[in-house]
Design a protein around this nucleic acid. Structure first.
Lengths: 251, 251
DNA sequence: ACCGGGAGCTGATGCAGATCATTAAAATTG
DNA sequence: CAATTTTAATGATCTGCATCAGCTCCCGGT
């Protein structure tokens, strides 16, 4: 262990710094940060009990709205099981900010007292279970336990940075690159498998990648014809990972 | 005063709720949240002294880089005087996330320990003064003073939400609407005047509005020809505020 | 079985805005 | 003050992708 640590430290101060900077310039349209939600680990048993006493678990069906942009905030929402999207809407258009698998918060902006309204909506992609935590109880825990608060801040920051990267991609990458990003994100982060059954329609996939559904269909077909993916209805298998990665970076 | 308060409260529970929801669907490409930085007010005199002891003031000239994406974070940066942009870059392109006038933080992601690198760069538009606060001292204050921490979280959230709205506009509004947004933002929030001398080149303005400089030039000319603005070099006067607002919303 | 409607797919068309090329004006430099 | 670079402006061209229209297929309702 000690040896590894020394090696780490050496690389850290040496050539790896540039590598890290390059890593920081590879933005992705991906919709999920790698950051793990560790905040609950920081609570004492007593605080966990308090949390349980002030939260309820609810089941949602596929396609149901969990919270509505503009509505009053009364609780913090944590996704225990399932898959959901967090998005902005203005009546005509919707912009998916992020999609979250289980064990993620659906927006922590609720903890902020100056914004008593949800700034975004959230909807389930599949049957899901969420935990509603009474917002004042959540704030009490933050006041009592700074380690917990730090983790919460880390999560907020990670989410923001993830979305900023997505913003960058939407502005500068073109459609092929964005679609490649999404495919990689689904395979690497959401389903953690090279093949999966999409719980999304082509239209929802289009929304994720920020393009029209027709364009998604055409481009998926092209990926399929060129052997980058195998596709049958909503089943997708990532075949040529490297070339997709390349398209994601150059596109 | 009492009467006004009652009226407020009445409107609040009544028809204004819908109004507020509508307000929440009017996203702007604007780059600055209205949120005021009040966190330092929450500090005790002693804590303020501690802050002063652990921070330094630095002068920057116009166009200088304040922090570089990917560089090590050792301090929290607060803009005391001037105007700066916070942006992402990947070598080829730059995306302005926000521009901040005085009395704003240039990114509070530094407080998060899991990200010891700046996730974005910052550059001054004009001669500016910034305060560097030692990041561990800042964290100590957060640990000691929950009111302070809450304000910090509020600021982080406000900034994020602002940028999400900008994201939405960049994705769905077209160039005219985005340029109108930026003009309103400059007049309302940055210079707080209907006429001002832009400290930005056309190219920088283009970057702000997310388009090419040629397009900015053409559209500004069109605004000028149609009497929406008056323009002479870098001087701009907003004349027909209402029509610009309309373009911002429909565009 | 019939109908209606949404999802998936394909081809044709249009256009917003990027890109390129050029020139003029202004700012910076030695 | 001449030399050089940067910024502004304008016209011509090109293209990525949205949009529209039309088609098939499938599923759920009556």
């Amino acid at each position: 262990m000690q040896i590894i640590k020394i090696a780490d430290s050496f690389v850290y101060l040496g050539s790896d710094i540039r590598l890290n900077m390059e890593e920081l310039t590879k933005f992705s349209a991906c919709t999920l940060s790698f950051h793990q939600c560790k905040c609950f680990e920081k609570l004492t048993p007593e605080q966990k009990k308090f949390l349980d006493a002030n939260s309820v678990k609810i089941k949602y069906r596929k396609g149901e709205i969990i919270c509505k942009q503009g509505g009053f905030v009364s609780h913090v929402i944590y996704l225990e099981k399932g898959l959901a999207k967090v998005f902005l809407e203005n009546g005509t258009n919707a912009l998916v900010l992020r999609i979250t698998p289980d064990h993620n918060f659906l927006g922590l902006s609720s903890v902020s007292e100056v914004h008593p309204y949800f700034p975004y909506s959230a909807m389930t992609y599949v049957d899901s279970e969420i935990r509603q935590i009474e917002v004042n109880a959540f704030r009490t825990l933050m006041e009592q336990n700074f380690e917990f608060t730090k983790e919460v801040i880390d999560i907020i920051n990670s989410n923001s940075l993830q979305i900023y990267g997505r913003f960058f991609c939407f502005t500068y990458k073109q459609a092929f690159g964005r679609l490649a990003d999404i495919l990689l994100c689904l395979a690497d982060r959401i389903f953690r498998a090279s093949e999966f059954d999409l719980p999304l329609s082509r239209k929802e996939l289009a929304e994720l990648a920020g393009m029209s559904s027709e364009t998604v269909i055409r481009m998926l077909k092209e990926f399929n014809d060129e052997g980058l993916i195998r596709m049958d209805g909503r089943f997708i298998e990532v075949i040529d990972y490297e070339r997709i990665k390349q398209i994601s970076e150059t596109g």
